[in-house]
Design a protein around this nucleic acid. Structure first.
Length: 596
RNA sequence: GCUCCUCUAGCUCAAUGGACAGAGCAGCAGCCUUCUAAGCUGUUGGUUGUGGGUUCGAGUCCCACGAGGGGCGCCA
């Protein structure tokens, strides 16, 4: 947010170095890391180390780098004086700290936030299109908490990338065909023909699937019926296709309901079943060009010996199987075609991102590498963004077959019920309708936040107690800070605040106010970083820090009862804080309630 | 055998190669006649798995080891 100040100082520092025969400095800027201090800082250790080497080479004399850094910093501070707009400069422990003139800079930040509103923190358009594929639910199965991480992570990455300035295509890739679907169809046709799901569609679909698995486990001889059905599907018998199409739609309808509840949307659906034939064509092409080896004549599969093709001596990409010996498609068959399909549909894609479970890392490395070997330039634009799984306590993996699952419907119901109890108790004056709305916002937020607030490479362990704990570092804490902002502004008749952003008179800002403004000013840079590194964690951290700083401010700085000048300024600050918190929550796909 | 990931306070997790490793939860002690206590304050808690190395500087990068987890030619 203060790039122009940084650049001005850097120009001065380069002049200083040139004048003093020092190496050209490469500076990186950080906020001054001490509570209540506001400004920008840079260390001079790198510069000092470079100069120390030069002195060593020239004179053979060793130089103590930290001392040298501090000496240079002190000289530089004297050379620079206090740059325009700053309150002071200090050289300490090899760092140069530039302190902002708080009131002036505070109002630059606040004015910017209030002017930009919902767009505060958004990046300039980058003119690049990015596709994010996520969620990939299996039709004819239940949707459980383990499936939630991709959906939430992918949605939030999409939001962040969009806000950062990219054109984002949100893609879903449902698994609508495969052995699980055939098993389901078999069970349905044999024991549930004519039944239709009424409510909780996805749960019902999952029930029929679980029943199928159970039946087959108890009576393995029934497998023959399933195989027979698979053969009928392979022949595309109209009756089977029609049944598949109808029941598949039930699942998709169920998914739509859940996505709506979770406020997740898609621009484009790719279906597993549609990638099958194109995938086989890609495989043929790979065989023709000598990249793949066709083992089918000998009853073996079609494979690509990737390491061999690359001349690698150590195992890295290994051998990929890209088509079964019986000519049926594998995931890799379909992913080869899908990767290409995406660029056919959107030739200007700068990046094609796959938000998929870390266990498929090798699979994607193989697919992308095979395409690269085959000469597809798009291969290097494909990137797998992996995440770790969601487990149950005791390192138990959620599995539909094992029955160790927490269903999404149950989790949402439980979380909103619990939130409703809390809001009923905390704020009984609200209308029933308001309470319901708050409970939904809080319940959904409480589900999403834990999935986003840890490194995606770390396993999330789901347990009810933590999931339903609405205190501390969690979404409701941030939402509550937003509500408090809103409450103050409502009482102050917020509409007059936004209309007159220029306050008359100046006063000494409290340390809590400075802390809050400092954090608000960091938002745009954090958005860019989150987008560049695919890390929603940056946003959860900042949103939480903002809420904490606001609660701190709320506790020590009266607003409505303050003197007129202070009151006017603090109202603007509260409005800016509310906006920053709301924008942060919005990036996380979490609602900002007006009341709680 | 090859390979990827994880290891930080009792627990769950943060921390651009930089200044003093921070939060929450749990525990203990306080704060509602106040802009909503879903809040705030104080307090307890650390050889960042172990050993080397690189660097002016390492929780962060490199190597080895340990522990746990994932993946590896016809599962998805």
């Amino acid at each position: 947010m203060f790039e122009s100040e940084q650049q001005a100082i850097e120009t001065q520092l380069r002049a200083f170095c040139a004048q003093n025969n020092l190496p050209t400095p490469e500076l990186s800027w950080t906020p001054i890391p001490f509570a209540g201090k506001w400004g920008i800082a840079t260390s001079l250790f790198q510069l000092a180390a470079n100069d120390a080497r030069a002195i060593q080479a020239r004179t053979g004399r060793g130089v103590n780098v930290p001392q040298h850094a501090q000496a240079i910093a002190a000289q530089a501070a004297a050379f620079l004086g206090t740059p325009p707009g700053f309150a002071s400069v200090e050289a300490v422990k090899g760092y140069l700290n530039f302190y902002f003139a708080p009131f002036e800079f505070a109002h630059r930040v606040i004015d910017q936030v209030l002017q930009d509103g919902k767009r505060y923190g958004a990046g300039d358009p980058k003119g690049q299109r990015v596709m994010v594929e996520f969620s990939q639910p299996n039709t004819h199965k239940a949707f459980h908490v383990g499936h939630l991480r991709s959906a939430i992570l992918g949605d939030v990455l999409s939001r962040i990338l969009e806000f950062a300035g990219y054109n984002v295509v949100r893609a879903n890739y449902p698994g609508d065909m495969g052995l699980h679907v055939i098993k389901w169809l078999w069970n349905y046709a044999a024991y549930h023909r004519g039944e239709r799901p009424a409510t909780d569609v996805t749960q019902w679909m999952g029930g029929v699937y679980a029943e199928a698995s159970r039946r087959l486990e108890e009576n393995p001889e029934l497998e023959a019926e399933v195989r027979a059905l698979y053969a009928r599907w392979d022949r595309r018998e109209p009756e089977i296709v029609a049944l598949w199409e109808e029941t598949r739609q039930w699942s998709l309808d169920g998914f739509h309901e859940m996505y709506a509840l979770l406020d997740i949307r898609f621009d484009r659906y790719y279906f597993n079943s549609q990638a099958e034939q194109p995938g086989k064509q890609v495989v043929e092409q790979l065989i023709q060009s000598g990249i793949a080896e066709d083992g089918r004549p000998n009853g073996e599969a079609v494979i690509v010996k990737i390491d061999e093709k690359l001349g690698l001596t150590k195992e890295k990409y290994r051998v990929a199987v890209i088509l079964r010996s019986d000519n049926t498609a594998l995931y890799s068959t379909e992913d080869l075609a899908l990767a290409i399909q995406k660029f056919d549909d959107y030739p200007d894609l700068a990046k094609s991102i796959y938000v998929v479970d870390v266990r498929q890392s090798l699979h994607f490395q193989q697919v992308f590498k095979i395409l690269e070997i085959a000469g597809y330039a798009l291969a290097t634009k494909c990137q797998h963004v992996p995440y770790e799984v969601v487990n149950l306590p005791g390192n138990v993996i959620m599995s539909s077959r094992e029955g160790t699952v927490v269903l999404l419907e149950d989790l949402i119901r439980e979380a909103t019920t619990r939130a409703l109890e809390v809001v009923r108790q905390k704020n009984p004056s609200l209308s029933e309708e308001q309470m319901q709305a708050v409970a939904r916002a809080v319940g959904i937020g409480a589900i999403k936040y834990p999935m986003l607030s840890r490194e995606s490479g770390k396993v999330v362990t789901f347990d009810w107690q933590t999931a339903l704990d609405f205190n501390g570092q969690a979404a409701p804490y941030i939402q509550y800070a937003h509500v408090r902002c809103n409450s103050i502004l409502r009482k102050a008749k917020a509409e007059t605040v936004d209309a007159s952003p220029t306050p008359a008179g100046e006063y000494a800002l409290d340390a809590k106010e400075i802390q809050l403004i400092d954090l608000i000013s960091r938002f745009p840079a954090e958005v860019q970083r989150a987008a560049a590194e695919y890390k929603p964690l940056q946003i959860t951290n900042l949103a939480y820090e903002l809420a904490r700083a606001f609660n701190d401010f709320y506790d020590t700085c009266p607003v409505l009862k303050a003197e007129p000048i202070v009151r006017a300024n603090r109202l603007l600050l509260v409005a800016a804080a509310r906006q920053a918190i709301a924008n942060g929550l919005n990036l996380l796909g979490i609602q900002s309630p007006e009341v709680m």
